[in-house]
Nucleic acid binder design. Structure first.
Lengths: 203, 203
DNA sequence: AGAAAATTTGCTGATCACGCAAAATCCTTC
DNA sequence: GAAGGATTTTGCGTGATCAGCAAATTTTCT
């Protein structure tokens, strides 16, 4: 079923994503026009907009995929697993390959890309948008798992939204850790703290 | 010190905000151009952009003010107050006047405005942007209060970001509650749960 | 009143995003 | 393997947003 058509579509999508990211990293976000990205990917500018609705979508597409992957990962966790274990693993998983627990440093280009997402205001906004756009689905998956009604109960959406936020905080902390630290444990800490409660440290 | 200049500036800002909101509610967001808002406020289109950088900023300006107000409110809480009490009150305060604990229903126009913020994707994105743009400041205020170093400690930013998210969830829940419920208790519940931990309901 | 400072405004240019229809490409069926 | 159908790409045109710049207007200060 993987016709040439689908493969080509995936390929241009991929080409546009990497072109956008590469150019933005090289020249700075403001010196990249849609036209440039399209040219780099060997495609007409009009086609760019068939794939991505805004100039920034292509750059944040990887992040969009990560977010969606978390939702799917949660749905794929074994049924017996305790809820917070499942949720933690699901949230961590898409980040694991970037910067695992092992000492190996993440690819610098990849890190620069993530850093740009959190430093360029326009990309930060786009990232937030996709993260919280998906959180209806995340809430639904959570509701399903804990047996709640997502429309009436506050719990699923509260957990979905705060977990999403906690991951953001974890990534941000990871980005600014001076002796670099591995990301995955940071994320686990965030989620464990969230599950257990956030009392003030000194009280 | 309240020269005519400053008063006029406040007035046009206010006029632009209300004009933008009114038009968006009346016609739908997509049928409002910057030009229309400026005309409604009796000002040139170019001036609109001196006040607001995007078409959506004016509409979400009230929300922006709420977010900022929370940060200031936290800084203004009495020093002896327990941390989570202070934080809860600070987050709730800007919303309190809209829909307090008392039975009085909120002004329908006001409610429609808030609902539009969470239903129109573009406005939702803008709201998220301002909420999380301010959360560096919120984290700083939290760090100050609990005596932490916002650059090194994860706690302040984790709390800031999750609290912001929890408020979002609370407001969203309030908006879809079928027999309407007062907002403030919902927000308090969200924040109490966040502070105490979010174990799965049935485990 | 008159100079200095700040704000408003019109103009302009760069860019973006999308509708539409023609051209190009891929897939299916005979 | 060729014709016909379906999908994608592309070019063109349109409407709109946003920011820089300099002139005009308004407020403030002396």
């Amino acid at each position: 079923m993987t016709g040439l058509r689908e493969r080509k579509k995936q390929a241009t999508r991929e080409a546009l994503m990497t072109a956008a990211l590469r150019l933005a990293l090289e020249r700075g976000l403001d010196n990249v026009r849609v036209e440039d990205i399209a040219a780099e990917a060997g495609v007409s500018p009009r086609t760019y907009n068939n794939y991505f609705a805004s100039k920034y979508e292509a750059i944040t597409a990887r992040h969009t995929d990560r977010v969606r992957a978390s939702v799917e990962a949660l749905r794929a966790r074994p049924a017996g697993e305790p809820f917070w274990d499942a949720l933690t693993e699901a949230m961590v998983q898409p980040w694991a390959r970037h910067a695992g627990t092992t000492g190996q440093a993440p690819a610098p280009e990849l890190l620069a890309g993530i850093r740009m997402l959190s430093e360029e205001p326009a990309l930060r906004a786009e990232s937030l948008k996709v993260a919280f756009a998906a959180d209806g689905e995340l809430a639904a998956a959570i509701a399903e798992r804990v047996g709640a009604d997502p429309a009436r109960d506050l719990y699923p959406s509260l957990v979905a939204v705060t977990v999403t936020a906690a991951v953001q905080a974890g990534v941000a902390h990871w980005l600014r850790a001076d002796p670099p630290v591995p990301l995955v444990p940071v994320l686990r800490d965030c989620l464990r703290a969230l599950a257990a409660g956030l009392p003030a440290p000194t009280e």
